[in-house]
Design a protein around this nucleic acid. Structure first.
Lengths: 210, 210
DNA sequence: ACCTGAACACCGTTCAAGT
DNA sequence: ACCTGAACACCGTTCAAGT
């Protein structure tokens, strides 16, 4: 049933995802759902934990940097498959078992690779913030492909009046450059991620427990 | 009226923010709102642009690094004051004038400080993702103060059964350390931001237009 | 022509009425 | 005892009926 919820939310988005549509999809009466979950909030929490289950645990074998990179890519991919989940992964209510397992593995990988306690907290906060924020940007902006993004840029440029062009010259430049060159989210994500990981590497030694 | 919407959303959160409650607050009949705005979506877009208006434009006088830092801090502060706005700042619908002004100033500051076109895109994508993601984490986790966070950590630790402690040793370690030392969002945000800015500085020269 | 109250098609959830 | 259909208190938005 949680799995059916994830599939439905993927298909129709979070607005179209209602107790009633889920019940209909499952061929039961809406009330029947309340046999399995207390309310919609609890249902969503269960669905989020299913998304966590899709994220690969960091693999220490290739070093912490590659492990962090793989996990970030995996997390972003999961958030892309399930866009409704962005902003619900760290929800306040009791975290699910997959969430706990995932975070424990992440913290463990860093600690075992010589990161101090403070540094471990900094790194997880920094990396997760970047992944969540990037996914959020991609979800709300949501040009799906480079072609689409070029198209959108062109449309925006045409829509800009001459007056607006004079008022926002730098913005216009970016719009026109992106229209020419296109914009690839995967590449952009990787570039930023490498900046983070390199910065973390440099500062790794200087972070000491307070 | 948009301003009243922002205040109401700040007070009651996005779930409690309805056309009907806003109308009541303004002392008018719900229908009257539709004289000023086509629908709720358009109302929210207008409110988001009011939040953009609160973000300080980057000041070039102290160098790009300080300018980027100040803007990131200002953006995060605005997102903290108006938590409902996180995830709506880059919405697909036509961006408002304050949004355009803000992004134009941001891009302009970078371009005028010698960043290549490609580098400018990388930097804005990276910094914005971090700010949005950090604000999102803080919103969903939402311990307000260091004291509260210590409290929450302690409560979580008590709730963990001995079995769970054995299963998630690294997670437990972090929970216990945070309970002792506390956790301050402002400090944590600054640490991550400095990693980003230092990493950007290092790579500034190596990013060339493709 | 204009304003607005009633109404529509929803929503999550409750609860009593049937078996 | 259990299941479920009707109902409740909402929501955003429409629209016809009043002025």
């Amino acid at each position: 049933m949680l799995r059916a919820g994830v599939v439905l939310a993927d298909q129709v988005g979070i607005d179209g995802f209602t107790m009633r549509t889920l019940a209909e999809k499952l061929g039961v009466v809406p009330m029947a759902l309340y046999k399995h979950v207390a309310n919609k909030q609890e249902l969503l929490e269960g669905m989020v934990d299913l998304v966590w289950a899709e994220v690969t645990e960091p693999e220490g074998g290739y070093g912490w940097k590659q492990a962090m990179r793989d996990r970030a890519v995996s997390l972003r991919a999961a958030l892309f498959r399930h866009r409704w989940a962005v902003g619900r992964m760290e929800a306040a209510g009791r975290p699910g078992p997959e969430n706990l397992r995932q975070h424990n593995a992440l913290l463990g990988c860093l600690r075992e690779n010589g990161f101090s306690f403070r540094a471990t907290v900094h790194v997880t906060s920094l990396l997760d913030a970047y992944v969540y924020g990037f996914a959020l940007q991609q979800e709300t902006l949501s040009f799906e492909t480079p072609e689409e993004s070029a198209e959108a840029a062109a449309a925006t440029r045409d829509a800009e009046s001459a007056e607006a062009a004079a008022r926002y010259p730098y913005l216009l430049e970016v719009v026109e450059e992106l229209a020419k060159e296109g914009y690839d989210y995967d590449t952009e994500f990787g570039v930023g991620l490498d900046v983070l990981l390199d910065g973390i590497e440099v500062l790794r030694g200087s972070w000491r427990d307070g």
